[in-house]
Design a binder for these strands. Structure first.
Lengths: 244, 244
DNA sequence: GCGCAGGTTTGATATAGGTCAAAATCCCTG
DNA sequence: CAGGGATTTTGACCTATATCAAACCTGCGC
């Protein structure tokens, strides 16, 4: 198992990217893929804490995360903030900005990350020529809508324990898809950010995680989690433990 | 002020629709609009309680609401339900289904309604030819994402009173855009449905509305609401009355 | 016009999760 | 490798909202 130590080139073509089955090029033919390669202009690096974009900024591009981890958040004028998602490699971000030509949320790197920029005008242009790209773009947009509906269900009708179980299981699954362990991973976000995302206070997040640990479902130490019992976590989700 | 008593024709072209500035044809040139006319195949009528589509149904079309009122809801396997939105004339519905070719939620008429069907395959086809239609479709999809983010903010970080104030102000604004009174309207949904949408129980909805009435912000009797003080409602939204 | 089901209001009480506070830990930066 | 700010954990207490329950409407079918 050799690792290249060469500097990452500034341009990485989609065709050579190990995320191509997950990301924008998903299911494209080789011919189509070649055209998408020309689209992806630059790969940018961001450090922990950097903004990928800020709410209000003019919309130019979507972004595909190549490595790293981001959060998106909306800020209410009164200072309240709500984390609306955590994004990892292969996910596309910035779609909220299409509707008004300005970003509607902030995107912030939670660790050092690399991002491919996808100029949206050119993406539209190309997707007029390539029906399979067009279709895939629509799927990505729609998938985001479905994801949001799931979060509404979570925020609107689940208890704290359920929310956290859903959260951990979701991360687990997304790591698994990317070839990482589904049962042992590192949280890149703070308890506070988890709480904001799940509509609860950081103390409640901490307590609930401790509780999961007490009953043997997980181990957690700082940001490292191990899920010992996926079915057990799944069984937390459901309308009521009032049967004990 | 004459009113036509003629039977509504089964086909109504977008070009002759009074919602064209709000709906799919927004901002299209006359030439483009003509092509969209050919797309909209049928207008269907639904009665109160009818499903426009059900979760799991195969995805074929988006729907534009011509008249009436719908709710969308997602059902968790355990029977919990979450209302994800209330839709009115000029709004497009069904976009969650694109991602998986199957509807991800139910859409149910809250009053007798008429709906234009937009076959999605043909919409994609046409939007490959008409950049302005393509752009508008993307905006509509993105607008839904932004709307959902707003609901996450609401569900994740607002108190009951704030949620209800936001809800009333949102309805008010949407009625206003359609030329109806922003201060006097009819709720088409039950307290239970409002509660589901806002992540609270119907009793809390009822109590909070009564409270708004007591302090003179609104009058409410059954489903008829009058907003007496829009700025007052706006001032409810904000992080804290702990200043009194 | 009567009865009844579904919807709404209101009250009394319970509780999940919030708030405040302090101690423990972690992790940068110098 | 020491000091200090940020993060996390845990405890004690409090409150917003849920829950349970009863009475009240209101519109529809008979």
């Amino acid at each position: 198992m050799q690792k290249s130590v060469a500097l990452t080139p500034l341009r990485v073509a989609c065709s050579g990217c190990n995320l191509r089955e997950l990301c924008l090029p998903m299911k494209l033919t080789d011919a189509d893929l070649e055209q998408v390669d020309d689209l992806i202009s630059l790969k940018h690096a961001y450090q922990r804490g950097d903004y990928l974009y800020q709410s209000g900024a003019k919309f130019q591009s979507l972004y595909a995360i190549r490595t790293g981890f981001f959060k998106t958040q909306v800020l209410h004028e009164d200072g309240r903030e709500q984390v609306t998602g955590f994004q990892m490699a292969g996910e596309i971000i910035g779609m909220d900005a299409i509707s008004s030509d300005a970003h509607a949320c902030d995107a912030i790197a939670l660790e050092d990350s690399e991002v491919c920029e996808i100029p949206f005008g050119r993406l539209e242009e190309l997707s007029r020529k390539l029906p399979s790209l067009q279709r895939h773009l629509h799927r990505i947009l729609s998938r985001e809508i479905v994801r949001d509906q799931g979060i509404m269900l979570l925020l609107g009708s689940m208890r704290a324990e359920e929310r956290l179980a859903v959260f951990l299981l979701n991360l687990s699954q997304r790591f698994a898809i990317r070839g990482y362990s589904p049962t042992s991973f590192h949280l890149r976000m703070t308890r506070q950010e988890i709480g904001s995302y799940l509509g609860m206070k950081l103390e409640t997040v901490s307590r609930t995680l401790s509780h999961f640990q007490e009953i043997g479902l997980i181990s957690i130490r700082k940001k490292s989690v191990e899920l010992h019992n996926l079915p057990g976590l799944q069984s937390i989700v459901g309308p009521q433990q009032q049967l004990l």
